[in-house]
């Protein structure tokens, strides 16, 4: 009875969506009710309905899009530059043990340092400019991909390499058929973490030193006490985070369809 099965699947899918949105919905509804009933100061906690209206206005005027665009632009630039360099570094470290031993203390030290504390130093080196702002999240991406790229190379099952050799695969074929696909899941773990970090750090840097982006928008809103814009900035940042997570999951599923799905989730 394929029809019935389809129906069941639909029901569980709808149910999952319902559960997925229920907690935020309850929270927003409570907030709305409290604000409307004047239990909380609407100046500090403007009701979500007003936030939505303001968001629509900001979106229509292009203001919101410009800020999101600026943040996204920095995030993607930092993510691409940092991740690619980091991945290359990780793979090379995986191939040469001595290099890993030489670089490990350095990587561990920088990894453990809160990256924002490096912004002043990077500004001393690069100048007070866009390069320094992007360098902070890029550095974080570099470290994450170096670590996960290295792990990916080192954790390849020796058995698979032996099998490939036994069946006469050439070096190039082994790279394409064994090393690269084997590394994909681990590398993707690094990529997911790196993109999240890039977003967080870009917004943090914007709060401290920038005249554009969501971070700047949030901080300016705080200083001018425009609480509506403050909340809209935070919600936009959260939405960006979720969207990137979903996008990267989809991409991974496309690139590594053989990988057993982890936890079943709505995203």
């Amino acid at each position: 009875m394929p029809n019935r099965r389809n129906h069941e699947r639909l029901k569980t899918r709808a149910g999952r969506w319902l559960r997925f949105v229920s907690a935020p919905a309850v929270l927003l509804a409570a907030w709305e009710a409290l604000a409307l009933a004047d239990y909380v100061n609407p100046l500090f906690f403007p009701p979500p309905s007003r936030l939505a209206l303001e968001a629509v206005r900001m979106a229509a005027s292009g203001e919101l899009g410009a800020q999101i665009g600026a943040t996204l632009h920095r995030t993607v630039a930092a993510f691409l530059a940092g991740s690619l360099a980091g991945l290359a570094c990780g793979i090379v470290m995986g191939g040469f043990r001595w290099l890993h031993e030489a670089l490990e203390p350095l990587i561990a030290a920088v990894y453990a340092t809160p990256k924002l504390t490096l912004l002043p130093i990077l500004m001393l080196i690069l100048g007070v400019n866009e390069a320094a702002r992007v360098a902070v999240p890029a550095l974080s991406c570099f470290l994450l991909l170096a670590i996960h790229g290295f792990d990916a190379v080192r954790s390849i099952q020796k058995d698979y390499v032996e099998l490939a050799k036994n069946y006469g695969l050439t070096r190039l074929m082994r790279l394409r058929r064994v090393y690269l696909p084997a590394a994909v899941p681990q590398v993707f773990t690094g990529i997911r973490l790196a993109f999240g970090q890039a977003l967080v750090l870009t917004i943090s840097v914007e709060i401290v030193s920038s005249d554009s982006g969501l971070g700047n928008m949030i901080w300016t809103a705080w200083q001018t006490f425009s609480t509506e814009q403050l909340y809209i900035g935070v919600f936009a940042a959260a939405a960006l985070g979720i969207a990137s997570l979903v996008g990267l999951r989809r991409l991974e599923r496309k690139l590594a369809p053989w990988h057993e799905p982890h936890a079943e989730g709505i995203l």
Binding site: Q157, D159, Y160, E162, L163, G168, R177, P181, W258, H259
Partner: peptide
């Protein structure tokens, strides 16, 4: 000579169909 192994475990590559 072509000397081929059939392994006990890990005999198929998980990323290939």
């Amino acid at each position: 000579p072509r000397i081929l192994m059939v392994f006990q475990e890990h005999g198929v590559l998980p990323w290939l169909t």
